[in-house]
Design a protein around this nucleic acid. Sequence first.
DNA 1: CCGCAACGGTACATCGATGTTCCATGAAGG
DNA 2: CCTTCATGGAACATCGATGTACCGTTGCGG
Lengths: 187, 187
Amino acid sequence: MMTRSPILRDHVAAAILDAAAIVLAERGDTASMADVAAAAGVGRTTLYRYFPNRDKLLHALTEAALTELVDRLVAARLESASVPDGIARVTRAVLGAAGKYQALAHTARKADMPPEFADQLGEPLAMLFRRGAADGSLRADLGTETLLGLYTALLEGVLSQGLHHHLGAEPAASALTSIFLDGARPR
Amino acid sequence: MMTRSPILRDHVAAAILDAAAIVLAERGDTASMADVAAAAGVGRTTLYRYFPNRDKLLHALTEAALTELVDRLVAARLESASVPDGIARVTRAVLGAAGKYQALAHTARKADMPPEFADQLGEPLAMLFRRGAADGSLRADLGTETLLGLYTALLEGVLSQGLHHHLGAEPAASALTSIFLDGARPR
DNA sequence: CCGCAACGGTACATCGATGTTCCATGAAGG
DNA sequence: CCTTCATGGAACATCGATGTACCGTTGCGG
């Protein structure tokens, strides 16, 4: 027998998640399961065969998005970069993973983010900023916490505004990094 | 007869809108009319007497929020300020009007923003940034459009992240302005 | 080439939200 | 004091979304 193919099934599931990410990013919570199914080019019942209910789908989506983000973050090897370059890498990583990640900002209003991810995401970033405060490559007058908050706010704003679509991911990333590090005033 | 009092009615309506702004900002589209009514401390039927349906409520809320924002923006007298100071004033204005404005970012996904408001909000800001590009008080290498996009992204991100609640409106505004103008790198 | 299994579609039960109607209550105003 | 009117609650109809069951079709695997 051998149920058709387990790999195919995984790929279909991935395709559904990609579609879900898009439609959720567009329409937010108002997107229905039917919308997701249609966007994925799959029957509604088939969608339910892969994800037995809406919660499971959301959960799988957040997990996929956070995993991708964490992967990109470790691949960025922040330890072996200067602080400014590290920030540039983080920016590229986040904007590159935007596809799936963007949907979560609207829906999963920090509801049930698994705490292990929170650490895996937040710690490297916090470490980077602390290092910057210590070695003088970042301002100290605003406080490391505030600085980090402003940086993530800028990331979230750019994503939610779709700026990386107008400009392309790479130009958007370099513009964002440049503004955050050097400001809008000419040096 | 004299239907009780027309001013009282306006105040109740305003209270409902305030409550709606809060609950919409928290729960987004998933907030029900019943939630809004409860948050406003008013019966569900009474809510429907003031706003005959959900659309009307949302519409009134966006109008109130945008009106407040426009008012603060004209009160800021951007023409008579330097560009950096103008940006500081805009930041304070937006963060000050956050209460109502924040809810719209999640819900009214630039759906039906009345175009007259779009101009009243966008034009002064665009003017300010163009002036900055012309007189050299803002960088020109990223393009005025991009610069403006990054600035509004930063505003939106700070709001959606609630940073102005952790820090207080005024400190948040000055930190935001400082980062945007001067960057995170020490000068 | 044949059968199993996944697929898509239809139909259906259920649930929560929306919007409406009606009525009892209570408080302000004359 | 007594009328009047807004309020809040309950009951109701409706609608869309969720989740489930069934069924005909299709196509890959053996």
